[in-house]
């Protein structure tokens, strides 16, 4: 653990794990392990890839790219699915 200056990754300037990066998932900040794939992130979130669609920095991420796509600092991810609607 190291203490870092306040910034985008660390608004409070609190102690953070240097091996973590902060990303936005569905509008909320989350700290995730550096080098984690999007597929790995979904697994951490308990989300079944076949049931969702992922938008990565405003581009739709095909399911067969989830494994190969790393999550990077300040990435913006949207994880969506079908819900009831008219």
């Amino acid at each position: 653990m190291v203490t870092t200056e306040p910034g985008r990754d660390n608004p409070a300037g609190a102690e953070t794990n240097a091996r973590e990066v902060t990303v936005m998932v569905n509008g909320e900040e989350r700290a995730v392990a550096q080098g984690l794939s999007v597929a790995g992130l979904l697994a951490e979130l308990g989300v079944e890839p076949a049931m969702v669609v992922v938008e990565h920095n405003r581009r739709i991420l095909a399911r067969d790219r989830l494994d190969a796509t790393p999550v990077r600092k300040a990435d913006v991810l949207e994880v969506v699915h079908f819900v009831g609607g008219g």
């Binding site: 569905n26 509008g27 909320e28 989300v47 049931m51 969506v80 699915h81 819900v83 609607g85």
Partner: peptide, 19 residues
């Protein structure tokens, strides 16, 4: 018809209509 919305990550994905 179905709508497209964010998964509620606190509640899990079970409320998805495909379930």
């Amino acid at each position: 018809t179905v709508a497209v919305r964010r998964v509620d990550l606190d509640r899990g994905a079970e409320e998805g209509i495909l379930h």
